[in-house]
Design a protein around this nucleic acid. Sequence first.
DNA 1: ACATTGACCTGAGAGC
DNA 2: TGCTCTCAGGTCAATG
Length: 248
Amino acid sequence: MPELPDVEIFKRYLDSYGLDKTIKEVEIRSEKVLMDLQPEEFKSALAGNKFGSSQRHGKHLFVDTSGEKWLGFHFGMTGFFEYLSPGEGPEGHPRVLFHYDDESCMVYDCQRKLGEINLVEDKDNFIARKNLGPDALKEVDRDKFEVIISNSRAMAKSTLMNQEKIAGIGNIYSDEILFQAGINPRAKASNLSQARIEDLYHKMNYVLSEAIACEVETERMPPNFLLPHRTPGTSCPQCGVNIERVKV
DNA sequence: ACATTGACCTGAGAGC
DNA sequence: TGCTCTCAGGTCAATG
């Protein structure tokens, strides 16, 4: 669920509530999301520090800790941040809690524990190690996009979702982008005409930036978006036919 | 190089 | 009410 637009909203949320405050203590309720990181190492790397600027790459969010390392957040399928004012307790599935010295708190919540938090020495290095492609919104221009698509022998949907080719797009938004472009998700990427690819490029930017502008709230999205009508049994926002589900 | 499947996790909701 | 089953959909590894 957290794809590029979601993570961008998480970034803005953290930027507005969580930066420049001293971290008093880090509470770890699930070591699972720290992967192979030692909890004590994690805590000591952060205690007394502050979150500074943050940078998003695809579905990853990197946060300056004013220490030697950055924090790398990934949100899996169910991750998000929740800011707690002093006195408020966490609800839901808090996994890691960053307690500030003013008694407020930034919570990393991840119900299914498929997300992860890493200490990252060098984020470019991290991106390279993970083989992440260029960020879909910031680092892919028209020409680069055309090369990526026309060189991919996979299905259009798989190509858009492949983080090594383009970083940031997942199941939901690949569907939306292809829907807006009128392209069958099963179509072979390299078979698309240049005109189709160019249109697809604009639709990718349109969908992603529109979703961010709506702060990822489905109710606020344009009426021609498929996203709020993904469940089978509802009708197409553009032509009215019943929505059916196919597995791609 | 790509498709497919299952594993990882957990809980909300459906159905009985 | 309470149980079990299905589903959600990001990433990775194994297999074809």
